[in-house]
């Protein structure tokens, strides 16, 4: 029994990581029908930007600041203007393929210009363990979980309580009508890209001490987050969080009680079952638009 609790806690810690990455997926999908296959790489890159700034001799806090700014510029604004805008009208697929190419390009660029080696990354959360109800949990994992929860609360507040949030929701639900009632649709879409860029930079900051800064670390993350987003519901921020946590826990339980060789299979089977019985995802709402 104590073993089970251990696994649950560890699963939630990993799941929080997936959830944090998955949130961005759902945001981009909602406002602009963008499936970003490079989302994992988006999380990988900011850490390297920060490392590069530190390499020049800047202190860690400044590196974080510049790293976030560069993320907003490259992964938010640049991504939207250079890749998404020209292709958006042509449907989901060409853009999805282009993000796959982007993922390859980002991995190769980091490998070529930084290193193929994994490098350690300083943690803003002290590296240590705390004991909660007799379970040993690392502070870093708690930090990720706390951030994930804060992100959901923050985003929900933004979307439901502020006028910008209402405009973003209107954009997500029906851009044509939103445009007619005077919502600056373009600016709202840009907002979501900037929010996504900010989130991946934060995620990078918290996850990299655990995953290490490595050009390929986005592969595992991106795929897990994608699956988490589908399971939870592609069109809901809360869905992404629930999906992420669920996948994390299921993965751990599968490794302990089913088979370590097939641990990755269990979340996928879960995904297929969910699609059969609740295609919109656990917390998603059915989509009216056909894609």
């Amino acid at each position: 029994m104590s073993n089970l609790l251990d696994l649950l806690v560890a699963g939630l810690a990993t799941g929080a990581i997936y959830a944090l990455v998955a949130v961005g997926f759902t945001l981009l999908w909602q406002t602009s029908q963008t499936i970003n296959f490079a989302q994992g790489e988006f999380v990988m890159l900011p850490a390297f930007l920060m490392l590069a700034v530190m390499h020049v001799g800047a202190p860690f806090w400044l590196a974080i600041l510049i790293g976030i700014l560069l993320s907003l510029l490259l992964l938010g604004l640049g991504f939207k203007l250079l890749l998404v805008d020209p292709m958006l009208r042509h449907g989901v697929l060409p853009l999805a393929i282009a993000t796959m190419a982007l993922a390859i390009g980002m991995k190769e660029a980091v490998k070529q210009f930084f290193s193929a080696e994994a490098s350690p990354f300083p943690s803003i959360v002290p590296a240590g363990d705390v004991s909660i109800l007799g379970r040993v949990v690392s502070l870093q994992s708690l930090g990720v979980l706390a951030l994930a929860i804060a992100v959901v609360i923050g985003l929900t507040m933004l979307l439901n309580r502020t006028s910008i949030g209402h405009q973003m929701q209107a954009t997500a639900q029906n851009p044509t009508v939103a445009r007619i009632i005077g919502v600056p649709v373009e600016r709202m879409i840009l907002m979501t890209f900037l929010i996504n860029a900010f989130l991946v930079a934060l995620a990078s900051l918290l996850i990299t001490p655990i995953y290490l800064a490595k050009f390929s670390s986005g592969e595992v993350l991106g795929q897990a987050a994608f699956i988490a987003a589908i399971v939870g519901g592609f069109n809901q921020v809360r869905g992404a969080i629930a999906g992420g946590l669920l996948i994390g826990v299921v993965d751990n339980l599968a490794a302990a009680y089913v088979s370590t060789q097939y641990r990755a299979a269990v979340p996928l089977i879960l995904l297929i079952v969910i699609i059969l019985f609740r295609p919109q995802g656990l917390l998603g709402r059915p989509e009216e638009r056909t894609v």
Binding site: N3, D6, L7, A10, G11, A13, T14, I17, I210, Y211, S216, S217, E219, V220, G248, D251, N252, L253, A254, A255, A256, T260, Q261, R263, A264
Partner: peptide, 20 residues
Amino acid sequence: DISTEAGQADFAADVSKIKA
């Protein structure tokens, strides 16, 4: 006899198996 994945980040389940 515990197999793990390349790039795996979370070893909690594997270690708890060893413990058991």
